[in-house]
Design a protein around this nucleic acid. Structure first.
Lengths: 242, 242
DNA sequence: CGCAATCTTGACGATAGTCAAAGGACGTGG
DNA sequence: CCACGTCCTTTGACTATCGTCAAGATTGCG
């Protein structure tokens, strides 16, 4: 089951096996991308969306100086650019941050699902709405929090999201990012990221070393980073079937 | 037609009259809110979404100091919290910024639409995806741009969005916001907003005075603010019917 | 007319950016 | 197996942008 991780930990049990099969049937083929490769370019007309099987993928917007802003980050089980299905094209680039495997899902197949499977359609819609909620948290984080808190908050999010799909045990995980990437995501320079990571270490909240994250005091880290996981909708609130 | 402004300027002509009628039929009643009133509170279970008829509405997330971050802003014709339909509840507050009129749309009616009107469903989904694209621009803006450019970029967005619905002629419009509001939206203090507005005035790009915006040099303002309107999807790219 | 909210300005300080240099880590090729 | 290059990390010194504090001006409303 390629799409087995879809909505894992969020709407567990909400997908009937028939729905899961219909979703699985939309996959046309699997493809691999190398670190730094662009998967989707802003503005190009789209005929498929990409379901992330493993690895890390970012959504980038560049400014006039060529400075890259990461506006979103995706992990295994995420329907990376399902946004491109209603939109027809994207406003940003989608780039692999490490070796990545994707399942291609043609838009035709998705259109058919909207006709034959309204409940599954609402779940797909739901998953894009979680992306939007995550975007809002990123606006909040990068607009309203100090550099140290931003970083703390960011790692709390990744911890939870990786926990959902079984890639974190809550105490540590691997995250194939450089300090430059962290800066691009949190609106900081890599130099300042370095200083901030030292502070988190000195506060004995967490460690980051070469893509390896160790959470030393999760509760303290979450409270320090002003992290409230409600926006990840991990508690499985259920919309009516029909 | 209460919902006449829905997707105006974005997918003009994409809504069939039958679809527009079905949408119109979902409206249960109209309600008014006063400035500062909370329309939807984060976390509360939702049974309806709100279609904005006129006025300005913000989506807020507060930090631990009680500092407010505006993570989104809605104008007439926006389906403010359609996000709440797939999600079942919201991760943020929705607040009126000025006297506001809303049309209530029960979620039951929306569920029925997903069953009977797949194409209209995709258009509703599309409109939430534009919100997501706007969120991404806000992440970019508040993470990557200087204070002056942020403000310029913000006003460019509002200019375009108001133009879509006929509330801006491209040269000026009213925007019932205080300098505190502008700061809360752009991640700045009101003091700095004031300095920044002066700079935009001195650069002869635009004026802001008591909720009145005058665009002096639109092209220069958009280029200075690194504004590329592609993310608003105003060019009417069309998804297949079916 | 008077109060309250908003705007404006100045002086000062703190957070984060810039510039620069040096030290690891890792992979490639000789 | 070592040398080299590249990318990433770390640190220091300096700078700039933006926040804080405070006071006064302006606006609008009851």
């Amino acid at each position: 089951m390629l799409t087995a991780k879809f909505l894992l930990g969020r709407r567990r049990g909400e997908l009937s096996s028939e729905e899961l099969q219909s979703l699985e049937a939309t996959v046309s083929r699997v493809a691999a991308f190398k670190p730094g490769e662009t998967i989707v370019r802003a503005g190009e007309p789209l005929t498929r969306s990409n379901f992330l099987l493993n690895g890390l993928v970012s959504r980038n917007i560049d400014n006039q100086d060529g400075q890259r802003q990461i506006v979103g980050l995706h992990v295994a089980g995420d329907f990376v650019d399902l946004h491109g299905f209603p939109l027809g094209k994207l406003d940003h680039d989608v780039v692999a941050l490490c070796p990545v495997e994707l399942a291609y899902v043609p838009h035709e197949a998705l259109t058919r699902i909207t006709v034959t499977h309204p409940h599954l359609t609402r779940l797909l819609w739901f998953s894009t709405m979680i992306d939007a909620a995550i975007h809002r948290e990123w606006v909040f984080r990068n607009s309203c929090l100090s550099a140290v808190k931003r970083m703390a908050n960011f790692f709390c999010e990744m911890n939870r999201r990786l926990e959902f799909i079984g890639l974190s045990d809550g105490k540590g995980f691997t995250l194939a990012l450089t300090q430059v990437d962290l800066g691009d995501a949190c609106g900081l320079t890599s130099v300042h990221v370095n200083r901030v990571l030292r502070e988190l270490r000195e506060r004995e909240l967490m460690l980051f070393k070469g893509g390896g994250v160790t959470i030393l005091d999760r509760k303290a880290l979450e409270s320090f980073g002003e992290f409230d996981p409600a926006y990840l909708y991990g508690d499985g609130t259920v919309p009516a079937r029909g």
